[in-house]
Every structure is written in structure tokens, then in C-alpha cells.
């Protein structure tokens, strides 16, 4: 597994070095991550809810991006919302990838048995429900719970990862080294965890980045609708506030939150594309060699 990651890392570095757009995207994502870390460490953004000045103040030395209707600093809110976005994005991406990887591995390995049938039924059922409707319904049903939105997203996002891993597992399980492991008497659990899943790392990594972006976008949409973050700030909340501000001819909240969201989603999408190109065996010069 570690050799695979090292190999992937080298390949990615090589690719990014030759792709300025991808490299720039990585820098932008890094900057956002730095902003999020600064918020978590209390360096900035912690005063996002304070009434720091007059309402709808223009940008000034004190409030670089002005204030909102209540007199809260728009920059502080946008920075704090970056941390919120990262929290949700990272958490949902990690948990979704873990669940999707395991479910996909199980389903693919036992593709002729009941585990596959049950998991396929479950995935089919979840996928059949309109996505935003399901997420909103779950978030609404779990209302008041601080993790409601996270749970809702995890409950719906894992199926795509699982389907991709399932297909890859079905391919890998027919390869000779898996046959050898089976003949050597390894239990299915060991085969899946030690030999199959590490060979789906390229899928999991790319899928994790896509889920990260999707989670942030969904969080913004749900927060905009009022069923997202409970007691923290989000770009969605700022955009929802901005929609009211526009009636009064005030655009600060709306523009700043939209730009922050656009910047992160765009940069991460470009980065994810680059990652996918780097790790996808079909785009490699040499054939992807699974590691047993």
C-alpha cells in the first residue's frame, strides 16, 4: 500500500510539474487549507458572530470587505465559513470513502452471493431517490442534531464510491495474485483489506476529492435553504443573507461568499481532474500494475 502511495505521489508530482493549471489549483487549495487551519487555531475568523461595526459598512481598513446587515465583519465570516466547508468536506470525504470502499470491496468480492445482492439493493434504493430530496429529508428528519447534515451526506455519497470499487474489485478478484492468496488459505476479509482495497487506492483517492467538492456544494445549498449548519457560519448562510441584502442594494455578502465558494470549488475541481489524469491507469504510459 505504502509503495503504491509513494508511486502515486511521484507520478502526481511529475504530472503537476508539467501542468501549470493543476499546480496553480493545488496552491489555491493549499491557501484555502491554510485559511481553515488558521480558523481552527484561532488566528482569524473567530469573531465571525460579533457585532463589529455599523451595518452594511463599506470596505475599510477596519473591515476589509465591509460588514453585513448586523454589522458583522464579512471577511471574518467568509474565513470562518472556509473552515466550516473544510470540516464538512474532509469528514464526509473520509467517511464516505471508507464506507464506500468497504461496501464496494465486499460487494465486488462476493458478487455472486447475498452480500452483493443486499448491497446492490441498498445502493439502488438510495440512488433512486432524487439526491437533494433525500439529503434535505434526512437533514430535516435529524433536525437539531449538529451532525445531521454530515450524516445525510454520508448516507447518500457512499454509493458512487461503492459502485466504482465494486467494479474494480470484480476485475481484480480474477487476477492470479488473488487466486494465489485464496489458494494459500487467506480469509476473504484479509484478501479484501490487504490485497484488493490497496489496489483501488487510485479510485478512492479521486473519489474522495470529488466527494469533498460535492460535500461543500451540498453544504452550501442546504445552509442556503436553512437546513444546513446549525450554529456555525457557512457560505450558504452568507449567500442566503445576501439574497435579502440585494433588496436593499447591498451586494457585499453575496459577492464575497460566492467568490470564496467559486474559488475553492474551481481549484479543487481542477486539482481533482489532474489527480484523476495522474492516477488513472488508462492514461498512463505503462500499464497499471496491481500490487499484491
Amino acid at each position: 500500500m505504502s509503495s503504491l502511495v509513494v508511486q502515486s505521489g511521484r507520478r502526481l508530482r511529475g504530472r503537476l510539474a508539467g501542468e501549470p493549471v493543476g499546480f496553480l489549483a493545488l496552491i489555491v487549495v493549499g491557501a484555502y487549507a491554510l485559511v481553515a487551519c488558521g480558523v481552527w487555531l484561532g488566528w482569524w475568523g473567530s469573531e465571525w458572530s460579533a457585532l463589529a461595526g455599523p451595518g452594511w459598512a463599506a470596505p475599510s481598513a477596519e473591515h476589509w470587505l465591509g460588514t453585513n446587515r448586523l454589522g458583522q465583519d464579512i471577511l471574518a465570516r467568509a474565513l470562518a465559513a472556509t473552515a466550516t466547508a473544510f470540516e464538512i468536506g474532509v469528514l464526509v470525504a473520509v467517511v464516505t470513502t471508507a464506507i464506500g470502499g468497504l461496501a464496494g470491496g465486499l460487494s465486488g468480492y462476493f458478487s455472486d452471493g447475498w452480500p452483493d445482492e443486499v448491497l446492490l439493493w441498498l445502493m439502488g434504493t438510495l440512488d433512486a431517490i432524487p439526491f437533494y430530496l433525500l439529503v434535505a429529508a434526512l437533514a430535516f428528519a435529524l433536525h437539531g442534531h449538529p451532525w445531521a447534515m454530515h450524516l445525510a451526506m454520508i448516507a447518500t455519497f457512499w454509493t458512487t464510491t461503492a459502485r466504482l470499487v465494486r467494479a474494480e474489485t470484480q476485475r481484480i478478484r480474477r487476477l492470479p495474485f488473488i487466486e494465489a492468496a485464496r489458494v494459500a488459505g487467506l480469509l476473504p476479509r484479509s484478501i479484501i483489506v490487504r490485497h484488493i482495497l490497496p489496489n483501488t487506492a487510485h479510485i478512492l483517492l479521486v473519489q474522495a476529492t470529488l466527494v469533498f467538492i460535492a460535500a461543500i456544494k451540498v453544504e452550501v445549498v442546504l445552509s442556503f435553504l436553512g437546513i444546513g449548519t446549525q450554529d456555525s457560519i457557512s457560505w450558504g448562510v452568507m449567500i442566503a443573507e445576501g439574497a435579502q441584502d440585494i433588496l436593499a442594494g447591498q451586494y457585499g455578502n453575496f459577492v464575497v461568499a460566492s467568490l470564496f465558494l467559486f474559488g475553492l470549488v474551481m481549484a479543487f475541481s481542477l486539482f481533482a481532474d489532474q489527480l484523476q489524469d495522474s492516477l488513472d491507469p488508462r492514461t498512463q504510459d505503462s500499464r497499471w500494475q496491481p500490487h499484491g
Binding site: 458572530s49 457585532l51 448586523l70
Partner: peptide, 24 residues
């Protein structure tokens, strides 16, 4: 009630209590 305005009213109320030392 879940709405932008009511949420802002809450934030205003909470910030004013924070000013007298009520932990947010």
C-alpha cells in the same frame, strides 16, 4: 422559525448578551 431573518435576529440577540458576559 427557520429563516434568514430570524437567524440574524438570533445572532444579534446572542451578540448583545455576549457583551454583558453571557457566554455565546
Amino acid at each position: 422559525e427557520s429563516s434568514v431573518e430570524r437567524r440574524q435576529m438570533f445572532e444579534q440577540f446572542r451578540a448583545q448578551l455576549a457583551a454583558i458576559g453571557y457566554p455565546p
